[in-house]
């Protein structure tokens, strides 16, 4: 009995730290979580990018960013993305809107899962709610 109890304690200890959490830590240690990447439209047309995670940059191309106005005068932006790799990519996107002076006017903070099949073109459309929103900053993360 005396020998059994410490064994039981050991068993409990082993079962204590969840396998999922340990696995998650190991995975994160070896393969750190993706950083957020940005693509922002410019007042003069086109867009600029801020690439913080090459794992996305090497696989997904941002082909174009088109800016237009709705009937009511609100800014609408379309971003064209292409998965240039041979594997399916699971991107998550969200966006923020900026006024002409660069201040953030509105945002969609939650991530929208956007699966991209190899070679597939995907268009992400964002329409501003406020009239002062002039430029759109697309946020991309792979996982």
């Amino acid at each position: 009995m005396n020998k059994l109890l410490p064994l039981l304690a050991l068993g409990l200890l082993a079962g204590c730290t969840t396998v999922l959490e340990t696995g998650d830590r190991i995975e994160r240690g070896l393969n750190p979580p993706s950083a957020v990447n940005y693509a922002t439209t410019k007042p003069e047309g086109g867009f600029s990018t801020q690439l913080n995670d090459n794992r996305v940059g090497n696989k997904v191309e941002l082909l174009a960013a088109r800016k237009s106005k709705t009937e009511g005068g609100y800014t609408r932006v379309q971003f064209d993305l292409r998965n240039g790799s041979h594997l399916r990519q699971n991107l998550n996107v969200s966006f923020e809107w900026l006024a002409a002076d660069g201040t953030v006017t509105e945002s969609q903070p939650n991530w929208i899962a956007t699966p991209l099949e190899p070679g597939a073109l995907t268009t992400i459309t964002a329409t501003a709610l406020k009239s002062q929103s002039a430029e759109c900053r697309l946020r991309l993360i792979s996982r």
């Binding site: 005396n2 109890l5 410490p6 039981l8 304690a9 409990l12 200890l13 204590c16």
Partner: peptide
């Protein structure tokens, strides 16, 4: 031992 088990 019982105490150790309970703590764990």
């Amino acid at each position: 031992s019982l105490l150790a088990c309970a703590v764990l």
